[in-house]
Design a protein around this nucleic acid. Structure first.
Lengths: 142, 142
DNA sequence: TTGCGTGCAAAGGTTTTGCATGGCA
DNA sequence: TGCCATGCAAAACCTTTGCACGCAA
C-alpha cells in the first residue's frame, strides 16, 4: 500500500496550490495543464483527485449546472483553526467570502446538542447573494 | 405557449407530492413509478422536472456522490415560507437530513444584517457527521 | 386541426474501469 | 525486481436533443 511520488501527482498538486480557493473541474485542470505543456490523462487526474480528497488536501463538491464536480485545494496553514470559520459563496458573482464570527459557535453547539449533528465548518458553504450583487440586482430590478 | 394537461405530468406531480420532503433522483422516480405499473420515458421525466423547477414547485439540488441531481417537492402551503429550512448532509453515510428549526432564522437575520449577505437556505447544505455515524465512529474508535 | 407532450434512440458530458505499459522504490 | 501509477480506450452513467407520433384543446 505504499505511495509512490510521481511527476503527475506533484504537477496536479502544485496546480491546485496555485489555484487555492478556486473551484475547478477535472476537465479544467486537464485543459490548463495542457496549455502549460503538461499532458495528463483524465483517468489519472480523477484518480489523483480522489486520493487528495481522501487525504483532506482537496475538497470536492457539486455545484452542478453545466459542469461536473468541482475541486478546491484546502490550505491547511492559512485556514482557520477556530470552529467559527465559515464560507459564504455568492451565487451570482461566485465570490467566496470568509466569515469568522463567534455567532457561528452558537449555531454549531445548537445543531450538535439539539439535532445530534456535528457540523464540519470547513466543508460547509452558505450559498446566497452578496452585498454588491444585491445592489446590482436592485438597480437592474432583477 | 399554452400548457397541456397530460397524464404523465400529473403522475409525476402526484408522485412528488407523495414524497414531499424527500430528495429523489430522476432515475428513482422512473424506477418507483415503473414498480407501480406506470412507465414514463426518462426524457419526459427530465422535461417535466425542468418545468416544475421553473414553476417553483420543485427544487433541484446537486448533492453529488453516486447519483445525479436530486429533486424535491416544495409544498407551498405547509413548508418553507419561513426561511428555516436547511439541510444537513452526513459525510460518512451520505444521509441528507431536513432541518426545520426556528433557530435558523436568527442565523439568516444575523448574517444579513451584520454581514450583508442574504443566505439562500434551500441551496445551503451543512456538511458534517450525523448521530448514528458518530456512534459508529465511537465504537470503532475511528 | 393545431401544436405541445411523449417516447425512443442517439448524442454529449462526466466519471469509472480494465489492461498493458511505464516508472518509483 | 516488485508493485503502484499511468495512459488509452471502452464502458457506465446521467442528462439532453432530434424526430416522428400521439394526444389535449
Amino acid at each position: 500500500m505504499a505511495e509512490y511520488k510521481t511527476k503527475q501527482k506533484s504537477d496536479v498538486v502544485s496546480y491546485l496550490e496555485k489555484n487555492a480557493g478556486k473551484h475547478i473541474t477535472a476537465s479544467k485542470i486537464a485543459l490548463d495543464m495542457n496549455n502549460e505543456g503538461i499532458h495528463i490523462g483524465m483517468a489519472t487526474i480523477y484518480r489523483t483527485l480522489e486520493k487528495l480528497v481522501d487525504e483532506g488536501m482537496v475538497k470536492k463538491y457539486f455545484i452542478g449546472e453545466n459542469d461536473g464536480a468541482c475541486f478546491e485545494y484546502i490550505d491547511k496553514k492559512n485556514s482557520c483553526k477556530h470552529p467559527n470559520c465559515f464560507h459564504l459563496k455568492c451565487e451570482k458573482c461566485g465570490k467566496l467570502i470568509h466569515l469568522d464570527c463567534h455567532e457561528m459557535s452558537h449555531l454549531i453547539t445548537h445543531i450538535n446538542s439539539d439535532h445530534g449533528f456535528i457540523i464540519d465548518p470547513m466543508r460547509t458553504i452558505f450559498y446566497g447573494i452578496c452585498q454588491s450583487c444585491q445592489q446590482k440586482a436592485n438597480w437592474r430590478n432583477i
